[in-house]
């Protein structure tokens, strides 16, 4: 049984306690984000700021200038939306060593509904200069992305899902900021995917193979900086691209891929994502169906060429 990615986040935080510079900030959602696990093992470097996300981001900025590595945690909608100006003007403009972690995002937040389901957070964070944006696809990549974010000096936004997805990566997986990853090689089409959708992209590719369609699957955890070279290579080889993300199709992974290919190697692209609408309450799996974010929807996009 794979672990929920937020659980991996909590466990990885606990591992990081040995680094005396790490300080974890919470805005009264530590039980949901799993940041409270860090409090159990390192209460002296756990700071509950209260329900004040703007203040939390500002405090993180101040801590970072005094030789600490703050990890500010809450739901994606609050850290990227409510505190956007603080992220932009204080953290990113100062190029400060602050790690922003959103553990609830996309429609997989589930029953809390639209107000808590960030579907535009990648677009927001990607648009800010200096910001690194990481969206891991499974438990192992979550662990590796957190460690890479800590090792990197500068602002990082980590989008970590609250749910569990099938494991894609083995224990020996190495993640590097700025690098994408080819999970399957095929020459008919490339499915470029991020986050929880990558396991669905693999599922789609397996079904397509039975129909004689050979699809590449490319996982992009590092949405910014993005692996331009790999995306161009894949486009040259497959001549057709489908991008897949649990995020609005405006400004996310699909946009990032299009920005590269429209200049360097124009090919037809189809976008699987949320079509400019808010989420709603429901079970995550039901919502993924409702918003057309399943293997079936990826296959439909591939077959639309």
């Amino acid at each position: 049984m794979p672990k929920a990615m937020r659980d991996v986040f909590g466990e990885t935080l606990c591992e990081l306690k040995e680094n005396p510079k790490i300080v974890v900030l919470d805005a009264d959602l530590g039980s949901a984000t799993r940041a409270l696990k860090f409090k159990d093992v390192c209460p002296e470097r756990f700071l509950d700021i209260g329900i004040a996300e703007q203040n939390m981001v500002g405090i993180a900025a101040g801590l970072s200038t005094c030789d600490m590595i703050p990890i500010a945690t809450t739901f994606s909608v609050f850290i990227t939306g409510r505190a956007f100006d603080q992220v932009r003007n204080t953290v990113a403009h100062g190029n400060l060593n602050v790690k922003l972690v959103g553990t609830h995002n996309g429609v997989c937040v589930g029953y809390d509904g639209a107000t808590h389901e960030a579907v535009e957070d990648i677009a927001l964070m990607r648009s800010v200069p200096n910001m690194v944006v990481l969206v891991p696809a499974d438990a192992k990549e979550t662990e590796m992305a957190i460690k890479a974010a800590i090792a990197y000096k500068g602002p990082v936004y980590l989008r970590i899902s609250r749910i569990a997805v099938p494991d894609i990566h083995g224990d020996d997986y190495k993640f590097c900021i700025g690098k994408g990853e080819v999970l399957r090689d095929g020459t008919d089409v490339a499915i470029i995917s991020t986050g929880i959708m990558t396991s669905r992209a693999i599922e789609a590719a397996e079904i397509l193979l039975k129909d004689g369609v050979h699809a590449s699957v490319v996982n992009i955890c590092s949405i910014k900086p993005i692996d331009r070279k790999l995306i161009v290579e894949v486009a040259k080889r497959t001549k057709r691209i489908v991008t897949v993300e649990e995020h609005t199709i405006i400004g996310g992974l699909g946009s990032a891929v299009s920005e590269i290919l429209s200049v360097e190697w124009p090919v037809p692209i189809r976008f699987v994502g949320i079509n400019d609408e808010f989420g709603t309450s429901g079970a995550p799996e039901v919502l993924l169906e409702k918003y057309k974010l399943t293997a079936k929807d990826i296959i439909r996009a591939v077959k639309s060429f």
């Binding site: 700071l47 703007q54 203040n55 981001v57 500002g58 405090i59 993180a60 900025a61 101040g62 801590l63 970072s64 200038t65 005094c66 703050p70 100006d85 603080q86 003007n89 204080t90």
Partner: peptide
């Protein structure tokens, strides 16, 4: 925003 950063420094 500056006052929050100052609070972070004091912390």
């Amino acid at each position: 925003q500056g006052i929050s950063a100052a609070v972070g420094m004091a912390l």
